[in-house]
């Protein structure tokens, strides 16, 4: 994967794209148990200017729980409360512009089945 300004999205056929359902991720998140840390966010955008410059914003898609959304002000919003701590955004943000640490002990997702 090319990073930084060299990041280039790939296109799949229109048929395949059309075959993807539009899932409302909150329906899935309802099944998850979280211990939410009200004091500290373990995810953050390092520099919002970089996100503004980022043309393709893949984080809006690949995050498996939809933590990243685009606010009406055009800024990336981070719903860190929904994070399952997979680490994808930490390594796949083309600009490595996402701050990522482990939640404090006991906080974050708590899988019941796994």
């Amino acid at each position: 994967m090319k990073t930084g300004d060299a990041f280039e999205p790939k296109q799949m056929s229109e048929d395949l794209k059309a075959s993807l359902p539009d899932v409302y991720v909150d329906d899935l998140l309802m099944t998850l148990k979280y211990f939410i840390d009200e004091e500290e966010a373990h995810l953050w955008i390092k520099e919002h200017d970089i996100c503004t410059r980022c043309e393709h914003k893949p984080c809006l898609y690949f995050c498996p729980v939809g933590v990243y959304t685009l606010g009406s002000d055009g800024r990336i919003q981070v719903a860190h409360q929904s994070c399952v701590e997979c680490g994808s955004c930490r390594v796949a943000c083309p600009y490595t512009n996402i701050g990522w640490v482990l939640p404090r002990g006991g906080f974050g997702v708590a899988y019941k089945f796994g």
Partner: peptide, 17 residues
Amino acid sequence: LDVLAEYRLRPYDILQR
């Protein structure tokens, strides 16, 4: 993961499909 990022695919959409 690079494929998900490059094709800008939502994992839960693929799973639902």
